[in-house]
Design a protein around this nucleic acid. Sequence first.
DNA 1: CACTTGACCTGTCCGC
DNA 2: TGCGGACAGGTCAAGT
Length: 292
Amino acid sequence: MPELPEVETIRRGLKDLISGKKIVKIEILNLKSYPNSQTDTNNFVIGYHIIDVRRRAKLLMIDLNSGYSLLIHLKMTGQLVYVSKKLRFGAGHPNDSLVNQLPDKSTRVIIELSDSNLFFNDQRKFGWIKLLPTDLLTDETYFSKHGPEPLENLTLTAFKNNLKKRLKSNIKAVLLDQSVIAGIGNIYADESLFLAKIHPKTMVGDIGSKKLADLYKSIQQVLQLSISKGGSTDKNYVNAEGKKGSYLEFAKVFRRDNLPCPVCGTTIIKIRVASRGTHLCPKCQKVKILTR
DNA sequence: CACTTGACCTGTCCGC
DNA sequence: TGCGGACAGGTCAAGT
């Protein structure tokens, strides 16, 4: 899926594109993608205006002036693509990309606005759009099981304290755990661990205080760089305008197995950690040998 | 309790 | 060209 930088990129684009607009219709092409009643949709969505687009962790919130919000999780392959009703381009035109071909076979929900459509595409059907009261979407309620935002309210002390709860787990599994820190997924876990020179299988309890500080910094650096590049496109990710992100061109290890490490030239390997494909440089990221 | 595995889906790629 | 199996950016529930 889209991880934090991809969801944040979509949020920024969408906020500009759809704020103030009215939802005129919701077309549901796959029931599981939109698990809400027709009554609630009629009462709290249709005819209402979009007043904000927010993000928490990997979730997007489209707030309406009805007191309700559309809460969206893109999971692995979800996309939210804005297409104006007026602007369509002919074949061969530079903008004759994805946006011209929608809806397609992966389109699950169409949110129709007065002058445009928002296509919720999701090849694997894991993603969803839930209709919930806006005041339920707070850290005290809906997000109580999510950890802090790594780029906002996460101090180094809090970071260390959160990791202390998982001393016996390997660090990669812990970075992927949304209740520890919100928003990191497989790409940025691998990239952060490479930058901090920590082997993904290292037990949290074996990582020293200085290394933890390195990791804290690396996470923020990697996420910020990716946001500035518009996120990572592996296969499916596109931003609100249907365009791909370029971060993967800057990735140091992710999807670079069998290529040389940009720091030492050693061949990058791919292994399995926390049952996820995991990329690392075996020289830069040594496993700590435990002496007993 | 802490941690790992399987399930949810579709599509693609690789080996035979 | 076809078929089987592994794998894909996430997260739950169920299992050990």
